[in-house]
Design a protein around this nucleic acid. Structure first.
Length: 433
RNA sequence: GCGGCCAUAGUGAAGUGGUUAUCACGGCAGUUUGUGGCACUGCAGUGGUGGGUUCAAUUCCCGCUGGCCGCC
């Protein structure tokens, strides 16, 4: 249940979201832990940084280790030793990102005449052994098949065939025991035609209806019927950059009365600058008394902008992924006009940081910049706003060295810094006047 | 001292008498938005030295220098 406490002059909605595993102050950011782990971070560290909820993934946990196994081990919370709220993405995005052919396939396009080499690449894992790989498109088409009933796809791990229906995806998430469930949706590419987006909206609504019916039935017949234990189910709005389709999708889902609403399909394949009309529209037409989740967004500046347009929930792989690739966010000190970004990204692998003895950000209060991991015990569970580095932090030079050596501590420090930056930003947004 | 083997990018290695000499790691520069990512894409950088054979030598031959191994 979402409670809107107050709306700031700049448009930010400050509220509380109640879940079976506790209350979350909104707006909030969910660190991404796709396979049941926020890469390189311990649950207690996430807590100490001010994380109140994390995101995990239905598709990945279903494939490995399997939701039944997690259930038999006491559920996802116990399995990963995180006792706060968990949201799982439905896997719709993963399945359709397979179809879009990003990532590996983007980089291992295999022409027919290079078929011998194809057998030596990882992509071989998801080729149909019985089919001729005549090129990327044919290969990918064979990986995902959508019907009205659901979606057939091949595991990226071993190529095995699987079928997701809206009902099955609800069942998996209930087995995992998560707090907020996403229904199976159709997430089209940013390059999709209007006709394809229309079809995605149609199926997404139809699947949402089935997911909700199944969820309500399932919840009523299990321990989840106790109000304090009942998880939340979102509806996911699609419609690409078409305002009329977004309106249609939103009104159909609102009609079905979900616990909250997610705005999907904007974080991928689009130039982010193009999405703001849609985000603004969503902020205007979604129910005031339900939480709004802008899926997959974004940079710190994106999040600032989106909260002011009425979004409450965010997740993004950028802080964690960029950290592992050496990039960290720092507050932009040179900010002059309102149009300048508030955060800038620097890459610690650049040679200019090799002998830089400053912490990542002198104005940052994170454990990497302050250098006192664990010394504060568990007493402080929220970031200290405007905390300054106290001179005991890890230097850019040292972290640069660790990253070059591929040392785990390097990843831990940069991830800590980036996540703290995001979580501290959310804390600031919630307490603005 | 004698004999054998070797010398190719910063490092370690391929390969060839004939357009632009290959690969890995390292270096440098980019990319990353509901994680198929400790990933990916680019770029830069090489024939020890002096002769000889040949239309043409990094490649074949000789000397020198340096290294490794064996023998006295």
């Amino acid at each position: 249940m979402y409670v809107l406490k107050r709306k700031l002059k700049n448009g930010t909605r400050v509220g509380k979201l109640y879940t079976p595993h506790g209350m979350i102050s909104a707006p909030f950011f969910m660190p991404v832990g796709t396979v049941g782990s926020v890469k390189a971070m311990m649950p207690a560290e996430l807590r100490a940084m001010g994380a109140e909820i994390i995101l995990s993934n239905t598709y990945h946990l279903y494939l490995r280790p399997g939701e039944k196994n997690i259930k038999s081990l006491g559920g996802l919370h116990k399995f990963m030793n995180w006792d706060g709220p968990i949201l799982t993405d439905s896997g719709g995005y993963q399945v359709f990102s397979l179809a879009r052919g990003n990532n590996y396939s983007k980089n291992t396009v295999i022409p027919a005449q290079a078929g011998i080499q194809a057998n030596q690449t990882q992509q071989n894992n998801f080729l149909d052994p019985g089919s001729q790989a005549t090129g990327r498109d044919d290969t990918l088409k064979s990986m995902v098949k959508i019907t009205d009933d659901g979606v057939e796809f091949r595991s990226h791990l071993d190529g095995s065939k699987h079928f997701f229906t809206p009902e099955k995806v609800i069942d998996i998430q209930l087995d995992l025991g998560v707090d907020i469930l996403m229904p199976l949706d159709v997430c089209p590419s940013g390059k999709a035609t209007r006709e394809e987006v229309e079809e995605a909206v149609r199926l997404t609504t139809e699947w949402a209806r089935r997911a909700k019916a199944h969820f309500d039935k399932k919840v009523a017949s299990t321990e989840y019927r106790v109000p304090s234990k009942r998880p939340l189910l979102h509806g996911i709005i699609q419609g690409g950059l078409y305002e009329d389709l977004r309106r249609k999708s939103a009104s159909e889902l609102i009609e079905l009365d979900f616990d909250g609403y997610s705005v999907g399909g904007l974080a991928v394949d689009f130039e982010t600058r193009d999405m703001w009309n849609i985000v603004k529209l969503m902020g205007e037409i979604l129910p005031e008394d339900k939480q709004r989740y802008l899926m997959g967004v974004g940079t710190p500046d994106d999040i600032i902008k989106a909260t002011r347009l009425g979004m409450d929930m965010f997740d993004c792989v950028l802080p964690t992924r960029l950290a592992r690739h050496g990039s960290v966010y720092i507050k932009n000190q040179k900010q002059k006009t309102k149009n300048d970004s508030e955060y800038e990204l620097i890459n610690l692998l650049k040679s200019e940081y090799r002998l830089d003895d400053k912490p990542i950000d002198e104005n940052c209060g994170c454990e990497a910049c302050r250098g006192n991991f664990w010394s504060r015990g568990n007493s402080e569970i929220s970031p200290k706003i405007n905390a300054k580095a106290d001179g005991g932090g890890f230097s850019r030079a040292y972290i640069s060295h660790l990253l070059r050596c591929n040392e785990i501590l390097g990843h831990r420090l940069t991830t800590t810094h980036n996540l703290w930056t995001y979580l501290n930003l959310m804390c600031e947004l919630r307490t603005e006047k």
